[in-house]
Design a protein around this nucleic acid. Sequence first.
DNA 1: AAGAGTATGATAATCATTATCAATACGATT
DNA 2: AATCGTATTGATAATGATTATCATACTCTT
Lengths: 150, 150
Amino acid sequence: MGIGAEERLILEDYLRERGQKMTRPRETVLEAFLKLERHVTAEELFAAAQRLDPSIGQATVFRTIKLLADAGLAREACPDEGARRYEHSYKHEHHDHLVCLGCGAIVEFKDPAIERAQDAIYVKYGYRPSNHRLELEGYCPVCAKKKVGV
Amino acid sequence: MGIGAEERLILEDYLRERGQKMTRPRETVLEAFLKLERHVTAEELFAAAQRLDPSIGQATVFRTIKLLADAGLAREACPDEGARRYEHSYKHEHHDHLVCLGCGAIVEFKDPAIERAQDAIYVKYGYRPSNHRLELEGYCPVCAKKKVGV
DNA sequence: AAGAGTATGATAATCATTATCAATACGATT
DNA sequence: AATCGTATTGATAATGATTATCATACTCTT
């Protein structure tokens, strides 16, 4: 079974249910996406997909990454600025981010206490939970040392 | 004492410290911003500022809202898509957001348990805290009812 | 293999934001 | 109040990211 076979099936099912089609370009984008393990922009994904198939168009990449997000295979990360970024979603459990403002390093973490406290908030206001995003910003040990006294 | 006098002084101090000047357009933008109580885009702020002074330019609004953010009077909110949004920062304590995906309603809340758990994360990874952003998405009681079974 | 309908890639268009630049306003000093 | 050096302004062009358009090509079912 090739890499991404499972994800391919998910996408196929998702498309079929909506009368849409599985195509070669979509496969290519999916394959490129699965190989990239970090938060990627459409730009980066486009470059990676082109390496697999030089004839692929930029518009297709934009269209397909949105499909992947809808199908539950990708998930939007929330950048402070610049282009939208996506990360893996399927079999990549929800997590929060700790971002270094100095070097851009990203720690992914999950904290039961935070999750529990968030659930309590939903209950308190009577909201039905969907998803959430938590970004902690700060300076990693290395960068913090460089900026002592700032 | 006029509305926003305090904020005006903060901006003035901030500018003076950096050899920059307090000008009429900047006052106008500040005034417009202080009157708007919700998360605003530069676009909306521009419209509001134009009502106060039709001669004001769009570029000035973009420039000034960034100044306000640097001066601690405004703060960036993190939108899922579209234009950047700003909210009041001065005398508006840090808080998190609970957003309804149905009607767009926003509840602002602050939870000690969440704050504490976040601080623990910073410590655990040796990061120096800067700021953080938490957005809980879901459906408010009204919208949840409309979408039963979804 | 043919037909109906979706997808593609190239390009133009849009939206938010930033850069450019000549003209103007600020405010410290005289 | 007039002057001067510098920062700021508004209009416009430029940029970057994303979306719309559209004629052609591809998929899937028959």
